[in-house]
Design a protein around this nucleic acid. Structure first.
Length: 488
RNA sequence: CGGGGUGUAGCGUAGCCCGGUUAGCGCGUCUGCUUUGGGAGCAGAAGGUCGCAGGUUCGAAUCCUGCCACCCCGACCA
C-alpha cells in the first residue's frame, strides 16, 4: 500500500482527498470552497473536455460564450428557477475599491454602487434565453444548438474537492426547438452522449434515468440523468439533461413564426457535465496505491523507466521505443530522472494511475525483452521487443475494457431489489449501492424516506419495466420500481 | 447559522495544563560518498513573524482578552 495515502477501508473520504492531493489533481486555495486544479488534474479534464466537445460538434452543436454576470432581475423571471438558485448566488454590488483613509488597505468605495446588482452565474439559462429572444424570429432559425464551456459559481455551504466546489468548470448546452417532440429528442440524445462518454471513455457504467419532481432541475419539466456508483456504494449524479418545455421561452418571451404563420413559444433543453466528473473518475476506479486513469483519458498512457538509471544506451533504446509507440498514437513519457530509484518511481507512477509502465534494464537489452506492468491488475510480464508496440496498443484497449467490466460487475452486483422496509434500511447500511424498490409516486413519501435514511431516489430508469407492487414505505399501490441510494 | 475542534518550517507534529537555556522530532529539500530490477544508507547543512492584535509578567508558543482562518458534525446542496 502507498506510503502517504489513507486506505479505503480506514477512511474512504480521506482516501479520496489524499488521492486528489497526492496525485497532484487539485489543491485547496486561499478562497474557501474554491480549489486550484493542478496541471495533472487539468490535463485529464482537458482530455474529457476535448472528447466531449468533439461529440457535441458531431451531433450538430456549436460553441459560443455568454457573460459571467447576470442582471439580478433576470433570475427572478422564471419562478422555479430563482427558487432553486437564489440561496447560493454570489452577488456583485460595487465596481470599485479605494484606499482606506486610515491606511489599513483598500475598502469598497461606497460611491461605486451598481444601479442593478449582478449575479455571478450559477447557470446561464436566463442570460442565454434573454439573448435568444433576439436571435429567434422564424422557424428557419431553429433548432438553435449552442454549447458553452464556462465556469459557474454556486455558494455551497459545504464543499469537497471536485465533487462540490463553490466555483467549477463545466459545459452547458442550451438548445431551442420548434416542437416539443424535437426538444425531448434532443434531451434524450444528449443524455446518450453523456452515457456513451461515461462508459466508453471514463470506463464508468451509468444508469440512465429520469428524476422525480423533487430532484428535478429548477425550471425544468423533466430532468434526465446518468447515475454512477462509487466504490463506497454511494451514487453520484454524473450528468444531467433537462427538457425545459416552454418555461424559459415564456419567461423571456421567445416566440417564433411557424410555417403556418402562427406565433409560438420555442421549446428548450439544457444539459451539462462538470469537473465533478473528475471526482467520479477517481472514485469509480483507483485503489489504495493511487489513481487508476482509464487509457483513453490518461494524459500519459505509457511510461518507460530505464532501470536502474537512464544511461545513454538505455535512453537511446527507450526513446526509440517511445517514438515507435507515438507513431501508433500512444501518449508516452520517458523517465529521464537520475535521482530516484526504480522502486520509488514504480510507486509514483502507480499513484498517478498511468495505465502501462515499461521497465527497461541491462537484463532486457541482453534478452531483447522489456518488462510490461499494467496498473489495473498490477500484473507484470516480459515481452519481446520485436512485438512490443502492437502488444502495448492491444494492452491499452484491454485495460480500458477491463476497468469498465470491473466497474460494471460492481455496479450490477449493487442494484438490489428490495421489498420490505426493514430490508431497505438494513441494506442501505450494510451493502449500499442502488436499491430497487416500489414507491407510491408522491413527493411526501420520497421526502420522508430521505429524512429517515438519507437515501434519495436517484432516478426512474429509462425503459423501466412496469410491475404492480406496493410502496416500500407506505404500502400504497405502485406501478414500478425506482432506484434509491445515498448519494454525493 | 447551531454544536465541537485546530492553528508551531513545504508537509506531519512534540512542547502549552504547571511561563524560564538556542522551540524538539519525522518526512521533504540541499551537499558529499556509497547504493540502485519494488518507496536506499551514512555524514553534514539550510529552513520558524509559534494564525493576527493587544494585555499580564523581570520573562509568553505556554496565562488573559479580542479578532481571523481552517477542519469535523448538523442544517443546505441543479
Amino acid at each position: 500500500m502507498s506510503k502517504d495515502i489513507t486506505s479505503r477501508a480506514d477512511d474512504y473520504s480521506q482516501w479520496y482527498i489524499d488521492l486528489v492531493r497526492k496525485a497532484g489533481l487539485a489543491d485547496y486555495s486561499a478562497v474557501k470552497g474554491c480549489m486550484v486544479i493542478k496541471p495533472y488534474g487539468f490535463a485529464i479534464w482537458e482530455n474529457m473536455r476535448d472528447t466531449l466537445d468533439r461529440m457535441f460538434k458531431d451531433t450538430g452543436h456549436v460553441n459560443a460564450y455568454f457573460p459571467l454576470f447576470i442582471p439580478k432581475s433576470f433570475l427572478s423571471k422564471e419562478a422555479a428557477h430563482v427558487e432553486g438558485f437564489a440561496k447560493e448566488c454570489a452577488v456583485v454590488t460595487h465596481y470599485r475599491l479605494k484606499n482606506a483613509e486610515d491606511g489599513s488597505g483598500v475598502v469598497v468605495d461606497p460611491d461605486a454602487k451598481l444601479e442593478e446588482e449582478l449575479i455571478v452565474r450559477p447557470t446561464s439559462e436566463t442570460i442565454i434565453w434573454n439573448t435568444y429572444r433576439d436571435w429567434i424570429d422564424s422557424y428557419r432559425d431553429l433548432p438553435l444548438l449552442i454549447n458553452q464551456w464556462a465556469n459557474v459559481v454556486r455558494w455551497e455551504m459545504r464543499t469537497r474537492l471536485f465533487l462540490r466546489t463553490a466555483e467549477f468548470l463545466w459545459q452547458e448546452g442550451h438548445t431551442a426547438h420548434a416542437t416539443r417532440d424535437e426538444a425531448i429528442e434532443e434531451t434524450r440524445k444528449m443524455l446518450d452522449v453523456y452515457a456513451t462518454f461515461a462508459e466508453e471513455w471514463m470506463a464508468m457504467p451509468v444508469v440512465k434515468g429520469v428524476k422525480t419532481a423533487n430532484e428535478r432541475f429548477a425550471g425544468a419539466e423533466d430532468t434526465y440523468c446518468i447515475e454512477a456508483l462509487m466504490q463506497d456504494g454511494k451514487a453520484l449524479q454524473a450528468g444531467t439533461s433537462h427538457f425545459l418545455g416552454q418555461n424559459f421561452a415564456k419567461a423571456f418571451d421567445v416566440q417564433f413564426n411557424t410555417k403556418d404563420n402562427t406565433r409560438e413559444y420555442v421549446w428548450a433543453t439544457s444539459w451539462g457535465v462538470s469537473t465533478r466528473l473528475m471526482g467520479a473518475l477517481v472514485m469509480a476506479h483507483s485503489d489504495d496505491d493511487g489513481l487508476m486513469i482509464p487509457p483513453r483519458l490518461a494524459p500519459t498512457q505509457v511510461v518507460i523507466v530505464p532501470i536502474p538509471k537512464p544511461t545513454p544506451e538505455l535512453l537511446e533504446r527507450a526513446n526509440a521505443i517511445a517514438a515507435d509507440l507515438r507513431s501508433k498514437g500512444v501518449r508516452v513519457k520517458v523517465d529521464t530522472d537520475d535521482q530516484n530509484r526504480p522502486g520509488y518511481k514504480f510507486a509514483e507512477y502507480e499513484k498517478l494511475g498511468i495505465p502501462v509502465r515499461l521497465g527497461l534494464g541491462a537484463r532486457d537489452l541482453e534478452n531483447g525483452t522489456i518488462e510490461v506492468a499494467r496498473r489495473d491488475t498490477k500484473e507484470k510480464s516480459s515481452v519481446e521487443l520485436t512485438s512490443l508496440t502492437s502488444h502495448v496498443v492491444d494492452l491499452l484497449d484491454a485495460i480500458q475494457a477491463n476497468m469498465f467490466e470491473r466497474a460494471r460487475a460492481y455496479r450490477d452486483s449493487h442494484i438490489t431489489p428490495v421489498d420490505t422496509w426493514d430490508e431497505f434500511v438494513r441494506l442501505l447500511d450494510e451493502k449500499g449501492g442502488f436499491l430497487s424498490a416500489h414507491w407510491d409516486g408522491t413527493g411526501e413519501t420520497e421526502e420522508l424516506i430521505k429524512t429517515e435514511t438519507k437515501a434519495t431516489i436517484r432516478c426512474i430508469p429509462l425503459n423501466n419495466p412496469q410491475e404492480a407492487g406496493t410502496c416500500i414505505k407506505t404500502g400504497k399501490p405502485s406501478t414500478q420500481r425506482v432506484l434509491f441510494a445515498r448519494a454525493y
